[in-house]
Design a protein around this nucleic acid. Structure first.
Lengths: 204, 204
DNA sequence: CCATAAAACAGACATTTGTCTGTTATGTCA
DNA sequence: TGACATAACAGACAAATGTCTGTTTTATGG
């Protein structure tokens, strides 16, 4: 490879490695060698080690594909959670779309206690939750007053704010056009699916 | 390792591999072997290959750490983008927090044309954007009417809806308590930083 | 209980990959 | 221009890792 000014190639190598790591798998030394047309492995290695000593990359010695992004060390690992869909026999089931949709999140919870859901109504408009928004939910059977929760009322999953009045559970919308749901009183079967921990909206 | 009923161990292996892939680096055959106490590499390999033929895992043959999640193939690769903060001399600069904050997103855009920003005011309340929300922004100098944009007005970055009236640009809040910003008219320096493509809110 | 499939084991080989020592060529800067 | 640092090259070794053939043990279903 042609000789390049100090640090120039290294920057490109950093970009390359970063890209690869984010795409899922760190490159090997020889991946870098080939990608940059080096005729010696050492050329790639030298740059990589320098990037490590500069703190721009982290590394696990001796292991294959041992290069990491330093940020990743501190950050919580990403989790892939399933988008749930239609309600079926009192249970939310995986959406029937052919390619099962997954969403990447980073939380302190286990990914098997999380699921995602597309919001349908406008009942939580004033809480900043719009139709089409994706809510990330942590499964739990209880909630504290003020929590935004997902509950199964009859056959439908709804997002509401959890309240208690006189020791009874109430599910409040945040939109004057809708009425609170007071379980037991109107005889509707009721079960708490979980608590909303994140809201996402794509506005492309 | 003790003999286990059909498919039992395989499930655990799948969970293990999945976990490792999401944490950043796929395991090696021998990683799996050790993790499950197999006394032969082949035991691990057999399970892994089976998972591949079942379609639960994908694989790049011959390469080290070649196991992938099939979803990843179709999905867009995750990107790490920087959280920007304070406004300085007309430019948004990286937030000064000690560990630079990054957010993981998946878009069709290049990560170097994206940045993230914490929303401060309440001016976009009715658009479902609350104080504290994180907006993901794509850098662009122009916008279409109806877009939600981030603009630098004076020394402050604001989120507003982009409108045009009589050929002039207007930045509209979505909250009656705030007034539209009409650049040029009131002489405020104005520059469009980009368009909001995603909104996120953590509600733990 | 038997036949069959699945799980686990044994041991080995080949490739990939990390690492090393030393050399040559090109930038950098006074 | 000359001294020095950096970039790139050469060739090799060793460890990590993927892969293979064959055998033994246990689960499974009639």
């Amino acid at each position: 490879m042609a000789y390049t000014p100090s640090g120039k190639t290294r920057e490109k190598i950093y970009d390359f490695v970063r890209e690869r790591i984010l795409s899922g798998i760190p490159p090997t030394t020889r991946d870098v060698q080939r990608a940059f047309g080096f005729r010696a492995v050492q050329s790639a290695r030298q740059h990589l080690e320098k990037l490590v000593s500069e703190g721009k990359l982290a590394k696990v010695d001796g292991r294959s594909r041992g290069y990491r992004l330093p940020e990743f060390g501190k950050a919580r690992p990403p989790q892939l959670i399933a988008m749930l869909g239609r309600v079926q026999a009192g249970e939310l089931t995986e959406a029937m779309e052919d390619p099962p949709e997954y969403i990447m999140v980073q939380t302190r919870f286990d990914d098997d206690e999380l699921f995602a859901l597309a919001v349908e109504g406008e009942s939580m408009l004033h809480a900043g939750i719009l139709p089409g928004d994706i809510v990330i939910v942590r499964r739990q059977a209880t909630a504290s007053p003020g929590d935004i929760v997902v509950a199964l009322v009859g056959d439908e999953a709804t997002v509401k704010r959890y309240r208690e009045r006189d020791g009874r559970v109430e599910l409040h919308p945040e939109n004057e056009a809708f009425s609170p749901i007071i379980p037991r009183e109107d005889g509707a079967p009721f079960s708490l699916l979980g608590k909303v921990i994140e809201v996402r909206r794509s506005v492309e």
